[in-house]
């Protein structure tokens, strides 16, 4: 998601289109609502895809049409399997996200505040950040086994780096003049971090959390490739091994919906903390 769009979401200012919709009412208002506009593109793509399949322009075996994918989804949902897979995957992401966020915030704040800590840990962390997620898999399996710990650890690693980078980088760019206000009032180091530095970086911090959450959803797939017997990642592997492309695409769709939903929840939960922010509201 583009940074400007993320920021606009954070500030929570209704877009001009939404304001017009509320003012105008009727069909035009519904059509220009954010939900309808946001759904327009995927619905259009699905219709084109369905039509292409119906006209025989695509291979139904390799590229099943949306109707077949939704039928698979409904079947999985009706049997209850889908909810179990969603629950376990979401739980893994949630726990990994919390651990990665706490660790990333603490280490990022320490590295941002203390030059010594930064010089000590940052080169190592920047090196580790470059390691592809999949490279951690064998090591985590060896260390933590093939059950939940290794999966959660992998997700936490994915979340940690954007949060760490966001916190450290933004603390370094906090206006010196604002920091001096804290110094004038004789704030201790931890108090300066808590009362000046962290609030000052809050908008960027929330962006980092959103980036971390996005990576959490990416890393859960790698995590669930580690011999999982449940979860949306397992559904993907299962679909590949049994030749069920409808199940693969259905899982991908569920990932997309869950990613968008959790991101929206994060934005909604953090919006009250950004009421003070005075930002640019894009036109149109």
């Amino acid at each position: 998601m583009a940074r400007a769009e993320l920021t606009a979401d954070l500030v929570g200012r209704p877009a001009p289109a939404a304001r017009r919709a509320r003012a105008g009412g009727g069909l035009a208002a519904i059509l220009s609502s954010p939900l309808v506009l946001g759904l327009a593109l995927p619905v259009l793509l699905a219709l084109v895809w369905e039509a292409a399949a119906a006209l025989g322009l695509t291979s139904r075996r390799l590229m099943p049409p949306p109707s077949a994918i939704f039928a698979t989804l409904f079947k999985l949902a009706a049997s209850g399997d889908l909810w179990e897979h969603i629950w376990i995957t979401t739980w893994r992401v949630a726990v990994g996200f919390v651990i990665g966020t706490v660790a990333g915030t603490l280490v990022g704040a320490a590295a941002g505040y203390s030059g010594l800590t930064r010089r000590l840990v940052d080169p190592t962390l920047q090196g580790l950040r470059a390691v592809p997620s999949i490279a951690w898999v064998p090591l985590f399996i060896l260390w933590l086994g093939i059950f939940e710990q290794s999966k959660v650890a992998l997700i936490a690693v994915g979340v940690f780096f954007p949060v760490y980078l966001g916190v450290m980088g933004e603390i370094l760019s906090v206006d010196r003049k604002i920091v001096e206000v804290g110094r004038v009032f004789r704030l201790s180091g931890p108090a300066l971090v808590r009362r000046i530095l962290l609030p000052a970086i809050l908008p960027a911090y929330i962006l980092a959390l959103r980036a971390g959450l996005g990576l959490g959803w990416m890393f859960v797939v790698a995590a669930e490739f580690m011999g999982a017997s449940q979860g949306l990642g397992y559904l993907l592997v299962d679909g590949q091994q049994l030749g069920k492309p409808d199940q693969i695409i259905a899982s991908i769709l569920v990932f997309a919906v869950l990613g968008k939903l959790t991101d929206a929840l994060l934005v909604a939960a953090t919006r009250p903390f950004l009421r003070w922010k005075d930002g640019f509201a894009p036109a149109g």
Partner: peptide, 15 residues
């Protein structure tokens, strides 16, 4: 000792 700077330096996240 208190100080008032050239610019107000209010903390924007506090009312």
């Amino acid at each position: 000792v208190g100080i008032v700077f050239q610019e107000p330096r209010l903390l924007p996240w506090l009312d």
